[in-house]
Nucleic acid binder design. Structure first.
Lengths: 222, 222
DNA sequence: TATGCTGCATACTGACGAGTATCACAGGGA
DNA sequence: TCCCTGTGATACTCGTCAGTATGCAGCATA
């Protein structure tokens, strides 16, 4: 949070960031093909010249956006995980995971992130570079989830009933699937749905989620 | 399978169907905005004139495709469900559900259906009519899943540990989520992943899936 | 104050694609 | 045989948008 001297390089970096943020909004709203660079630039408060000054092409902009959002996602991810590691290693990881979910949910506010993610997935089907990044990201996500699950097993000192690798894939799929479901039917996914999902997952692992030491979840969180 | 006399109306219906099938392929490949009506027509073996003779606009074609695929999906759905109802009402519904999943999986061959579904979801964000249809479809899916789950509970004569409504939402989300995950990383979802998913779900319901009377699942079912 | 450099604006081009207008030609009915 | 209906082909229009070329303002160094 230090105020850098606003050197020319910083100015350029700022416009680039503004363009990326605007691109996230516009691409999420209209999709890749449906978006125009004019609208992206205008949303950022610039014109198309600024876009082509900072990115090689429309695809280049989209790929840069993909990179940036992936990094953001993992920043939130590992942030919460690290936070959890600092706390006690008890078996009631439920509030921590719940916090993680809420952190990811509201990552870009509302359905924007989910929409953008779907756009990435579809776009990647025509762009090998994007596909590679997406695949790598999916792997990293599952690896993180797997480690988290294995920690749970280690904490309760039991042998896994299901393969932790598969459980990780299922957990990630379930989370993304709920986001997708919410796009199709906004009323389908509520707070209790999330809780039930956590209950099912912890149930599958072998933890009884009915023994929380506390419930630090603020309900009316934005 | 009866051979109708090929009246003019039938000819027209056939070209319409060809156009819809071609549209499914092309839209799944290039997305809605990325597809051209010329390519759709050419794929079907016609020209654009045939398209505008059978559909009002590009959006109209896409909406018609949405309708058709939704109907197909439910045809497969209720077909398998009905088939299951004719068999014994025993507790080993696992092979039946597994068959249901495989039926839905290969509905349009490979990832085509999943891709098309994502395209529908994104498209619906700009088209209220499509959104309404999609929401209604999601509701029907969950209702079917819920009934299936309630039947399980009734069969084993126990009280639900989790809300059947939420369990239904989770099941559907899990299934769609796995399809989405497979698009991001084709190696992520295997046969064992599906089996583990079923194990988790049945586990949550309270059924021990390790007591199958038989395993009629043909592995190499292309 | 001149001079170069850089980041963005402005104006333009070229291509592509949705939608339209019109026509060819099939098959059915008298 | 002739008309008549309408499906589907062909050839166009018109708008849109990615990409380009050029201009220009601001800031730096001299």
């Amino acid at each position: 949070m230090t105020f850098e001297p606003l050197t020319p390089e910083r100015r350029r970096a700022m416009t680039r960031q503004h363009l990326l943020d605007a691109a996230a909004v516009v691409f999420a709203k209209n999709g890749f093909h449906g978006s125009t660079l004019d609208e992206v630039a205008a949303t950022a408060g610039f014109t198309k010249g600024a876009v082509y000054s900072n990115f090689k092409s429309k695809d280049d902009l989209f790929l840069a956006l993909l990179d940036e959002r992936i990094n953001r996602e993992f920043a939130v991810f590992s942030d919460v995980l690290e936070q959890g590691r600092l706390e006690d290693q008890g078996a009631d990881q439920l509030p921590r995971v719940r916090e993680l979910l809420h952190g990811l949910e509201g990552m870009s506010g509302g359905d924007t992130w989910t929409t953008l993610y779907l756009e990435f997935v579809l776009y990647a089907r025509h762009n090998p570079e994007a596909q590679a990044k997406l695949t790598a990201t999916a792997r990293r996500e599952r690896d993180l989830a797997q480690k988290l699950i294995e920690n749970e097993y280690a904490a309760i000192g039991e042998d896994p009933t299901f393969s932790t690798r598969e459980m990780a894939a299922i957990s990630v799929a379930l989370f993304n699937g709920l986001g997708l479901e919410r796009l199709a039917d906004p009323d389908a996914v509520t707070e209790t749905t999330i809780d039930t999902m956590l209950g099912v997952l912890f149930d599958a692992i072998g933890i009884d989620p009915d023994t929380p030491s506390e419930s630090p979840v603020t309900e009316g969180s934005k």
